[in-house]
Write a protein that binds this DNA or RNA. Structure first.
Lengths: 122, 122
DNA sequence: CGGAATCCGATAAGATACTG
DNA sequence: CAGTATCTTATCGGATTCCG
């Protein structure tokens, strides 16, 4: 299997300041986590700092419903479930990269404008 | 000035089924409306079917705060206010187009998966 | 014309506790 | 391990009314 996911892979990506969003709050990050290969539920929880099992389940179910990933449950003890991107899910990486590139180029400018606004607007 | 905006320019773009979003619910559409040139408050209301003045104001203020557009009020009677994209706002068109292209290519597949899910999941 | 003020409902997201 | 169940809170978007 692949190496464990870096628990800090999303520090520096606070969702509230990104103007471009894919799916719900967690969708894009889940896609990034699954990009190298299939992962288990618990593996996903680590980098998605503070996500509760309820919310992670909701996001994964919605993505499964939309054909972005597959869920495979192995009948073992202890149970094992793996989530894997479909081709459709993988196709979202391209527009996601466009959004990331925009952020690298322009996010600082947006934040600067916001700073100035709050400093000068009563 | 430019031609009036087509009131139907966004029919066929229901926001709930698009997995890619820029800003809030209306941001991307406002950018499209301003792409050809500056527009007045009332001009924007027509294609943004059913948007209330409160919500349109909120979106425009947030975009102004983030440096995506400028607001210019002319001291005339009756009053006239024009909104115009900044270079920063215009820079979002590129990732927006990436999202639109994804939709053209893959949205039908997503909707098909969703259909199947609701047809087969109890 | 271009908003502001107020109120309201729906939904998203999280906290907490429990289970096959 | 991989969730489910229940509850609560926060935010968003909308309806309505009024104003300079």
């Amino acid at each position: 299997m692949a190496d464990p996911l870096d628990p800090d892979m999303f520090t520096g990506c606070p969702p509230h300041l990104a103007p471009i969003r894919v799916g719900d709050k967690w969708t894009a990050k889940i896609i990034r986590c699954l990009e190298p290969g299939p992962r288990r539920f618990t593996e996903l929880q680590a980098p998605l700092r503070g996500i509760t099992p309820k919310v992670l389940t909701e996001s994964l179910r919605a993505m499964e419903r939309d054909g972005l990933l597959t869920r495979t449950a192995y009948q073992e003890i202890p149970p094992r479930v793996e989530y894997e991107l479909t081709d459709l899910g993988r196709s979202l990486i391209e527009p996601m990269n466009a959004g990331c590139e925009w952020s690298r180029k322009h996010l600082a400018e947006l934040l600067q404008a916001r700073e100035t606004w709050y400093a000068t607007t009563p």
